[in-house]
Amino acid sequence: MTEIDAIPARGRRGQVGGPLLPAAEVDAAVGAFLRTSPPEKRWDTDFSFDWSRADAGRLTEGERSAVQFVTIIEDHLPGYFALYDQNFPVDDSVDRETFIHNRELYHFTVRWAQEEDTHARALARYQLAAGLAEQQELWASLADEGRKHFDLPYAQAVQFFVYPLVQEKATQIYYQHLRQVVGDPLLKEILVRLSRDEARHFSFFADMVGRYLHHHGDAVVEPIREVIAEFRMPLADTIRGYWRWALKIADTARYDHTEAYDHLVKVVNRAVDARSDKVDELVSFVRACGQLGPRL
Rank of each mutant, 00 (worst) to 15 (best):
W51K: 04
D55E: 11
R121T: 04
D91K: 00
D55V: 04
Q114D: 06
P153Y: 04
D117E: 10
A229S: 09
T45R: 12
T98A: 07
Q114S: 07
P78G: 05
F150C: 03
V227C: 13
R240C: 01
A206D: 04
M233G: 01
Q135W: 07
R270D: 15
V67S: 11
H119A: 07
T118S: 06
E198L: 08
D273I: 12
F161I: 05
I239G: 02
E61A: 14
T60A: 10
A130L: 06
F285L: 08
G57W: 10
D151N: 06
L187I: 09
E226H: 12
G183S: 10
R10C: 10
A219G: 04
A130T: 13
L123C: 09
H76E: 01
V181T: 12
E97M: 07
L213A: 14
Q159H: 09
E168F: 03
L191V: 10
E145L: 02
V94L: 00
L138G: 14
I239Y: 07
E40Q: 14
G210W: 09
Q167W: 03
P8M: 11
I173H: 01
T36G: 03
D277W: 01
E61M: 07
N269Y: 04
D207E: 13
D144P: 00
D197A: 11
Y242I: 06
T45F: 02
Y154D: 06
L105E: 02
R103F: 00
P234D: 12
P153L: 08
R196H: 05
E104L: 13
F231M: 07
Q68G: 12
G217T: 02
H149D: 04
P78T: 09
V283A: 02
T171F: 04
Q156S: 05
A113K: 05
I249L: 15
A9E: 11
D237Q: 11
Q172R: 09
A199E: 13
F160I: 00
G183V: 09
Y174F: 15
L292I: 03
P8E: 07
E198M: 11
H215C: 10
E259K: 08
P78H: 06
E189G: 07
L186T: 10
Q291H: 08
Q167M: 07
E115L: 03
H201N: 13
Y174P: 02
W43F: 09
V286I: 11
I173V: 15
Y106I: 00
A288V: 03
I4D: 13
W112R: 12
E230I: 00
W51H: 03
V272F: 09
